[in-house]
Design a protein around this nucleic acid. Structure first.
Lengths: 199, 199, 199, 199
DNA sequence: CATGAATGAGTCTTCATTCAT
DNA sequence: TATGAATGAAGACTCATTCAT
């Protein structure tokens, strides 16, 4: 079992990193937020980088695990895509801080993100495979599965992120939050399955 | 007309900011890239913040202008949406550095981005209005126009960004780049107009 | 008898201090090298300072003891000087780590070394007394016995140190090492007894 | 011409490094001693390491230059050796701070000193060549010229260093200091040319 | 207008030492 | 006795900003 303080630190780190971004976040703040001395963080983590990377990796792992579980619990590609949309939306809405952390840093040139991009790609490939299966079964129709996967990922991520920021500004109740999640899921579903056009 | 050095500085700034992100970018680097002394930047810009904000505002202004022109050149909401997708894709693919700059920083909590978010919202509202018009004319069908606008913005932005990074890694020819742009446009169009499902 | 762990720690300390110098040596390294927990060191030694000083004192004590034994086993000042040169060379060549430790820190301004300098002075005085006895017996001839003692100490120490570093770079066999020791002894003897000049 | 502040910093650095040693010296102290802000040092020097290395290199260059000049102004190996002893003694006694700096760090394992050792070796080789020339001319007699060179270097360096420390403790007048220098020169000469033994 | 040397507040990181177990 | 997690003071280094020339 992981040492207790490590968890406290990780929690504080998510908080601070998600609020400030990697560069603006100060180790002092994380220490204070965690209620430990600065040295304690360095006893458990090699560096700011290390702490951050650990967070990202763990977060992506959770996300991918959650997505896989939702996908595997369904059979048809259509239902699986629905599952994925639900998983994505709920996971991020329920882990708002982590969502900001992941999505904020998901786009950037720096080396730090190179490694992180691998996990992102893994997640996107999950979507891609789904699309390809749907095409194979004749359910879906699309010229570029890979691009479609990225676009869907983008749509879902940006929409969630946008709502999270709104949620942050006006502190909403959990019911309202749940309502927003449903709206996100419905919006994404409509975009992906029905498109804008009236048939 | 703007002073010549100002343009040199702005160009260098786009370059550096887009490569490094705001926090990692150093005024020294910008000065060097621009071939001017560091003091010169401060003669023309109040601060790093100021330089950055100017860049963002100008970039968003161009983007919004470009989008408006494409929209206005069409009549029906469907064609206008097509125009917008083309405008978005082409503008960002042709202004890769600016694209990274805008999209990298489009997601983040910090105050710096608060102001910038206003322009983003203006752009998204352009999409939203389009959708609402489409609904009014009976062309479109959608429950949450605002969320749809954000989702489409997200899909388009992330897809472009993704391709820009790939382009950066393997230096592609301009024909290939053009090809990619077409693929992006087609993918987004399919997502928005046809959806995944075979009708 | 000293506690077993104390010896383990002392051995590790010699190793690490001699490799890294006092300032660069880390208590963590010493603990690891000794295979004990860091706290254990502090159970047996008051501080890093204390550990180091103990090492130095013990080392100098051994050196001085060794020198005295060699001196006392001879009668004439000339033979005693020979004995001292042999003792010095052999002791340091056989205790390379200790040698580096002692000689590295023998030269420095810091307070830590003030105390250590006392032992050095004691050792040098051994040489000085020898010279004075030689002068008294008419064997030696020299204007400044004290300076002569220091110069001889310097010659012997630096030569040994130099060879130890060479030995470290190219791992030599013990025969070669023995050979080097003989060369050192002979060189020092020639310097002290015959001088450069052909009579 | 080197910028003025650079010289001020270098001077302060010699002072502080020679008093404290590399590890104990604080950049803050050097800045304060130089009367400049800490950042100014970093504007001119890449790092503490860089500052230190520069100092060492410059110092050794001066020393070697001084030695060469003294050697070249004499003809016979005997006189040249005398010249070298004078150069060594006077140079170090007149540049006490530099002497401590150079000699303190001349003995140590760390990488920092590896580079510095090259200069030391160059200086020692100067002595070695001298000895070899003396052997060729039949003036000198010695089995191991290289070891002899090192021993002489050690004798001279340690003797000077020892006197510098004594000088530091009791602040001596410059006449006394000059007197000490003469005593050093005479002692070394006797050691090198006459040896202990009465012929 | 332009320069670039100088500044110093702000950060990350290290490491000797302590202490509850 | 022994441990090793926790501490926090200390120190190297960065970089946006200023200002005298």
């Amino acid at each position: 079992m992981r040492h207790q303080k490590v968890d406290v630190i990780l929690q504080a780190a998510v908080e601070v990193f998600s609020d400030q971004g990697f560069d603006q976040a100060k180790m002092d703040d994380i220490a204070q937020a965690a209620g430990v001395a600065k040295g304690t963080i360095y006893y458990h983590f090699k560096s700011k980088e290390d702490l951050f990377t650990g967070l990202m990796d763990e977060g992506m792992e959770k996300l991918i695990g959650c997505a896989k579980r939702h996908i595997d619990s369904e059979d048809s590609p259509v239902d699986q895509m629905h599952g994925l949309i639900r998983a994505h939306s709920q996971f991020f809405m329920e882990n708002g801080k982590l969502a900001k952390l992941l999505l904020n840093e998901a786009f950037g040139t720096k080396e730090r993100q190179q490694k992180f991009r691998a996990s992102i790609r893994e997640y996107i490939q999950l979507i891609e495979l789904l699309i390809e299966r749907g095409i194979a079964t004749g359910d879906f129709q699309f010229d570029y599965p890979s691009e479609m996967a990225i676009a869907i990922f983008g749509a879902g991520s940006v929409l969630v992120l946008h709502k999270l920021y709104a949620l942050e500004d006006n502190a909403w109740t959990s019911e309202e939050s749940e309502e927003v999640t449903q709206m996100i899921i419905q919006s994404l579903s409509q975009l992906v399955f029905r498109s804008l056009l009236i048939k």
